[in-house]
């Protein structure tokens, strides 16, 4: 389940980061960018690459929040019951716990 969730976070974010990359850099020339008033000392390819990973990071954060909110709070938080006393169907039962 953990792998599935990681995939749900990383993969759609990757696709959307690609879309962001195309949209942003079709309108913006990386060589026009400045960093606190100084021109960036990175080639265009460098800025494309760094920006892509920045976009990916942000979109992953969004996916991660969506994933977090879609998990029930009982699954996220610590459970006060010892494992064997948890009822049937509890997501924190040892057998199916993530």
């Amino acid at each position: 389940m953990r792998n599935m969730r990681l995939m749900w976070i990383a993969w759609p974010a990757f696709l959307m980061a690609g879309v962001m990359e195309i949209l942003v850099f079709s309108m913006l020339d990386p060589s026009d960018l400045t960093w606190f008033g100084q021109p960036l000392a990175v080639s265009r390819q460098g800025i494309y690459t760094l920006a892509f990973f920045m976009f990916w990071g942000i979109t992953m954060a969004s996916s991660a929040l969506t994933t977090l909110l879609s998990i029930s709070p009982f699954e996220v938080n610590r459970c006060p019951l010892p494992a064997r006393e948890r009822p049937d169907g509890c997501p924190k039962q040892e057998s199916s716990c993530c």
């Binding site: 850099f25 079709s26 020339d29």
Partner: peptide, 8 residues
């Protein structure tokens, strides 16, 4: 050119 995004 990047301005031709519409074709893409």
């Amino acid at each position: 050119y990047p301005q031709d995004l519409i074709y893409l």
